[in-house]
Design a protein around this nucleic acid. Structure first.
Lengths: 158, 158
DNA sequence: CCCTTATAGTTGAATGTTCAACTGTCGCGG
DNA sequence: CCGCGACAGTTGAACATTCAACTATAAGGG
């Protein structure tokens, strides 16, 4: 079964490697910026962002896990750390006794507000501002094409 | 300085989020495939690939670190693990007594050969085959544009 | 030759992620 | 209302990565 492997063409290799390497460097840069300026990894910031976008600043753990594309376990550990810092609190869910609701605290919201400008700046500097509008449009299409395949029945209509 | 933040436009947000999320899912998938089929993380595979592409199947630690876009520390730990498994060996460098040379063993090469088809298949299934040739070409350009900025004086002409 | 600074690489502690196993609740068929 | 499989979430151990500190050699003055 190894005999009939469809190897990548030269052009495909070139795209794959450029994608792979730029990815590594980009997320290294974003992670370092976030860690230095706000003392948390980039992934934790995303959790705060998602919570802040909910009207009640709260979400069920499962829902939060799926919107942040993280495993339940990862989210559970992450929220535990965020809770230790007082940025998130966990509440029992009224309608389902198994459930937990993660709620962004005022302090957490303040941290998020303080972190956002630096993060956006880093995204711009390292990525958005390096690309043409056409490239950005194509990148959106690419990401969505990949998500169609990778995300089971994602894109919950909210 | 937070007051004049240039926030992302709707289209930029869309591209950034699609990129971010598809990334998470894609590398999760690739990492899981590699871990299950070959018992190593994706990054370790890349180390073996780079070593195999050197004529002597060997590279200086620093050079290996820069081509794999990893920190010295990360590489040092990773090579230590690979050495424990007998896939790589570390040799003293003849011309610089501080230096170490990582050398891909025959066993490591065999592991790499066994891992490659499954990895390529995963890259195809989850990415390449989901995109049009035009999207792939644009992706290469995008990656290279980002690398121009993120990689100091990279692209060593070899 | 000694001193200083830069380079090559490693190490250990702290942190984050993964995996598998676990607790507790829900929902449904009998 | 009992039993059973699915679901929600947590936990601890193993492993990976980061960060800062460290050893050792190199290279260039004075």
């Amino acid at each position: 079964m190894a005999a009939d492997t469809r190897w990548l063409s030269a052009e495909e290799q070139r795209a794959w490697r450029a994608y792979l390497e730029s990815n590594l460097l980009l997320f290294d840069a974003l992670d370092r910026q976030m860690q230095q300026d706000s003392g948390m990894p980039h992934g934790y910031y995303e959790i705060l962002v998602r919570l802040s976008e909910s009207p009640s600043r709260a979400m069920r753990m499962s829902e939060l896990a799926s919107t942040t594309r993280s495993s339940r376990s990862r989210l559970s550990h992450a929220v535990a750390r965020l809770e230790e810092r007082g940025w998130v609190e966990r509440l029992d869910c009224a309608s389902d006794r198994r459930g937990q609701v993660a709620h962004l605290t005022d302090e957490g919201f303040a941290v998020l507000e303080a972190a956002a400008p630096g993060h956006v700046e880093a995204v711009r500097t390292n990525m958005i501002d390096r690309l043409t509008p056409e490239q950005i449009a194509t990148l959106a299409q690419i990401g969505e094409a990949l998500l169609d395949h990778l995300a089971p029945g994602a894109c919950a209509p909210d």
